[in-house]
Design a binder for these strands. Structure first.
Lengths: 123, 123
DNA sequence: CGGAATAACTTGCGTAGGCAACTAGTTGAT
DNA sequence: ATCAACTAGTTGCCTACGCAAGTTATTCCG
């Protein structure tokens, strides 16, 4: 999937994932710490990934108004566009490599099992 | 799991995985190319991982008698010992992070689904 | 209100691993 | 038998990312 996305959308899978989470947060933005919870990165890895996305102009950060230590990250117009344009290839790739090989029932089982495992890990 | 294994058994999870596959192959050894199929590494990553395991004295390689380009990798006594000693922590960690959060039924579903996905990927 | 404890990042350093290009051995077609 | 095409593995280069230590801001006591 990483190669698919890299070739067809010029975006690494890890970056795509971060953009998708940041997108969920919408206008108001998301704190790096919260972003880390949704990814597999540590805070140091996150610092660098954020730097890269910012350098690419895909996200913008501003100082958090309620906590001077932290930031609030949000997609730029360019970032939203990049994400939107990557979507078809993303879903195609998910289908090809995963979804097409699973029944509906299996997909649901995986989803709930993974959710439970991830929740346990966050503690 | 990587951290668990690293701390308790002095072995990275990726290395453990390779040792386990090589162990399956037994006395006769396994070709790096076949080893790559069971791991997530590319052949270049594999070259280096093999170098490391060899430098640690955990595996030994000999030239393949039927194909002068290739090698046959097998565990050394030290490698077998390392793997055996890591086993308790490995299974404990699997249980803690995964198995304990799944029902029998889910575990079976995941196993067969993953097997199907991996098989599709090998093509 | 002042200082210790904590939290949110950041940075220096080191390692793993991918890609593309390379070397060397094997196979297959003429 | 030869030479092209392929396959096994290796290497140079570069990037991502973890860990541990550092910086700055916040919180929580006393």
């Amino acid at each position: 999937m990483d190669r698919d996305l890299q070739r067809q959308a010029g975006l690494a899978l890890a970056e795509h994932h971060l953009l998708a989470i940041i997108n969920e947060a919408g206008e108001q933005g998301i704190r790096p710490t919260d972003l880390a919870l949704g990814s597999t990165l540590t805070k140091s890895g996150l610092t660098r990934a954020v730097d890269r996305l910012e350098a690419l102009g895909l996200i913008a950060s501003r100082v958090c108004p309620t906590d001077g230590r932290g930031q609030l990250l949000a997609l730029t117009a360019k970032g939203r566009q990049k994400l939107r344009r990557a979507a078809p290839e993303f879903f195609r790739s998910v289908a090809q490599h995963f979804a097409d090989h699973l029944t509906e029932r299996e997909t649901e089982t995986l989803a709930s099992a993974f959710e439970r495992i991830a929740a346990a890990d966050r503690r």
